[in-house]
Design a protein around this nucleic acid. Structure first.
Lengths: 340, 340
DNA sequence: CTGAAAGCGCTTACAG
DNA sequence: CTGAAAGCGCTTACAG
C-alpha cells in the first residue's frame, strides 16, 4: 500500500522487464529499432505499471518540449478562437500541446509573453501579424525558437506567414461598397500602431477609393480599441459630422457590431440610413441584425495549416514556408445602396 | 562570434560571478537568503549574460512546472473565452503559464487531454463540471495533480469547485418566464450525458414548473449539440408540434441565438409568437435581435478566482476550498408575455 | 539489436 | 551566508 502511489520511472520499467533503460527509451521513441520480441515485453510492462515518461526529464535530455506557444491579441471575443481551436487540434494530432497567452493588443505585454513562453520551453511560436520590435525577432533567433506569423501575408516577410492579404481583401470589400453608390465613406479602425493588419486594411480602402477616382484624403478615420462598445462610440462620432458618411467600413466585426447596435439605439436604419461592414466573419456577423457584410476569413484552415507548418519547422529545423489563403466577400443585409 | 549564440547556463553565471551554482540558484529563487552584496553582483551577471533558467532542468530538479492546464469543452464560441482569459491573466500574474486543450464536449477526448496535460507536467488542472469517470479522478490522485472544477457548484462535491448553482439559476429564470403567463414551455438542451450542468439546468426548470403547479412531465425537451445551427433545428422541431410552446428555454446562449435566428427565418416574431431565453450571457446575447433574456454568469470573476485558488492548492498542497458565485437574471427583449 | 554510461541544467539538503 | 555534491529521469552517441 505504500510504494503504490509512487509514479513509476523508466528505471522501474527497465528492471521489471529485465532490459536496460536505453531499450525502454527506444521502445517509446524509436520502436523500429527494437526487435519485436523485446519490444512487446517492454510495452506490456509499461502498460502494467502505467508508466508515462517524466516530462521534465524528457525535455532536458531531448532538448525538446513538444509544446508550441501561441500569443494572440485576445481570447475575449471569437476573432481568434476558431483559428486557435483548429490550431490546437492539429497540434494535438501531431503530439504537441498548446501553450497560450494573450497580449490584449499591447506590444509590451506581447513581448513579455513571448519571453515567458520561450523560457517555458516552447519549441515554436505562433504570432499574429508581423509588426513588432526587431529586438524580439533577434531574441527568438538567439534562442533558436522558430516563429510563424498568422493572420497576414506578405511575400517579402522575414518570417514565414500563413495568412491572407489584408489590404487586397479590404479593397475588394470597399469596391462592393463603392459599387452601390457610396461616396462619403467613414472608417472605424482598431489602433494602427504596432498592428500591420489594421494599417493594411485602411490602405486597402484607400486603394479602392483612388482607383474609383475618389480622394482618400477626405476619409474620416476613427481609431479605437477592438471592443463592441468602442465601435458604438466611434460610430456616433462619425455620424455626428455635418456630412456624415453613408457607409462605414469597420476594421473588424466586433467594431461593426458595436456600430450596428449603436445605430439602432440612435434610431438610425441600417442600411437605409447608413451601411456598415466588418472584417473576419465571426459568428457575431451572422447573428447581428441586419446581418453583417464582411470579409470572410478561413479561420480553421489558417489555424490547422499554421500548426502543420510550425511543427514542420520545429522538426526539420527549416526556415519554413509561407502560404497565402483566400478570403471572400460576404454580402449581407448591412450593406445597401447609398440613398441620396 | 561563435560562443555568442550559445544560451548561457547557471554554470556560466556562477563562473563569471565567482560564486557557486547554488548561490546563483538562490539569487533567483530565494533572494532573501543571499546577502545583498553577492546578490547584486550575481544579478548583474545574469542580466549581462541574458540568462534565463532552462525550463526542463528546473522542472526536473524542482518537480514543478509552473504550468497549469485547462481543458474546456470548446474554444469555438465565446462561452468559455472570457473566463479563460481572466484565468490566464491571473495565472500569469502569479508566474504560471496556461496550457490549454479542448474536448469538444466529448468525455473520451477530455480524458485523453487530461492525460496529455498531466504527463506534460501540469502542476494543476482546471476542469469544467464534475461529471466524469471515477477512473480519471483516481488517476489525478495517483499523480498527485490537484484539480479544480469550474462552472458548477455543489457543497458535497469531492473536488473543490468555483462556480454557481446551475439548477437554482435556471429555476430563477424559469420563474420569470412563468410569471409572464407561459404554460407551454419547451427546452432545447445540450447533451445531458456526461454534462451535469446541462442536467442541472433542466432540473431547475422542472423545479419552477412544479412549484407553480405545472407538471414537468409535459415538458418537451430536445437535446442537441451546443451549436447555433443545432439550436435552430431544435427550435423548428419544437415549433412543429400541434401545440407548440409559447416559451422556449435554451441550455445556453448559443442554442438560444440559433433559435432566434431560425424564428426570423420562419417568419415567427420573438417574443410575439414565442419567447426564447438563454444561459451564460455571452456577447452574442446582447447583439442578437431581439436581445436575449438570459442568466448572467460572472465569467471573469470565476476565471480569476479559479486561478488564485488553483495556484494556492498547488503551492500549499492543500485540498482547496470551493466558492459559490452569484448569477443574475438578465431580462431583455426575447422574453414577453404569453399571448394565448 | 542492446547495454553501460555520460550528460542535460537545474535545486536542495547537508555541512561548515 | 555560501559551497560541494548528489540527484532529478530521461536520451543518445559509442561500443559491442
Amino acid at each position: 500500500m505504500t510504494g503504490n502511489k509512487t509514479v513509476p520511472t523508466l528505471d522501474d520499467v527497465a528492471k521489471t522487464a529485465g532490459v536496460s533503460t536505453a531499450t525502454v527509451s527506444r521502445c517509446i521513441n524509436t520502436p523500429e529499432r527494437v526487435v519485436e520480441n523485446t519490444r512487446n515485453r517492454v510495452l506490456k510492462v509499461i502498460d502494467q505499471l502505467g508508466y508515462t515518461p517524466n516530462f521534465g526529464a524528457r525535455v532536458m535530455a531531448a532538448k525538446r518540449t513538444y509544446t508550441i506557444g501561441a500569443i494572440i491579441p485576445t481570447m475575449e471575443n471569437a476573432i481568434f478562437a476558431r483559428s486557435l481551436q483548429a490550431f490546437q487540434e492539429a497540434l494535438h494530432q501531431k503530439g504537441y500541446t498548446l501553450l497560450v497567452a494573450s497580449s490584449a493588443y499591447r506590444p509590451d505585454v506581447e513581448e513579455e509573453q513571448i519571453r515567458a513562453l520561450v523560457s517555458r520551453g516552447a519549441d515554436g511560436l505562433l504570432l499574429i501579424g508581423h509588426d513588432r520590435d526587431a529586438s524580439i525577432y533577434q531574441y527568438l533567433k538567439q534562442r533558436e525558437v522558430p516563429a510563424l506569423i498568422a493572420w497576414t501575408f506578405a511575400d517579402d516577410a522575414p518570417h514565414p506567414c500563413i495568412g491572407f492579404d489584408n489590404r487586397a481583401s479590404m479593397r475588394a470589400l470597399t469596391e462592393e461598397v463603392l459599387k452601390r453608390g457610396h461616396r462619403r465613406v467613414g472608417i472605424i479602425s482598431g489602433a494602427t500602431q504596432g498592428n500591420d493588419r489594421a494599417r493594411q486594411r485602411i490602405e486597402g480602402i484607400k486603394d479602392a477609393l483612388t482607383s474609383n477616382g475618389l480622394d482618400p484624403a477626405n476619409l474620416n478615420i476613427v481609431e479605437t480599441k477592438y471592443e463592441i462598445e468602442c465601435g458604438g462610440e466611434a460610430f456616433e462620432k462619425l455620424m455626428s459630422f455635418k456630412k456624415p458618411p453613408t457607409a462605414i467600413l469597420c476594421g473588424n466585426d466586433v467594431l461593426a457590431v458595436g456600430a450596428i447596435r449603436r445605430a439602432r439605439e440612435l434610431g438610425l436604419d441600417v442600411p437605409g440610413d447608413v451601411s456598415i461592414t466588418g472584417f473576419d466573419d465571426i459568428e457575431l456577423a451572422k447573428v447581428v441584425f441586419p446581418a453583417l457584410t464582411t470579409v470572410h476569413v478561413p479561420h480553421r484552415e489558417m489555424g490547422s495549416k499554421a500548426a502543420v507548418e510550425l511543427v514542420n519547422m520545429v522538426e526539420t529545423k527549416s526556415a519554413g514556408s509561407s502560404a497565402e489563403l483566400n478570403t471572400t466577400i460576404q454580402i449581407r443585409g448591412s450593406l445597401g445602396h447609398a440613398k441620396n
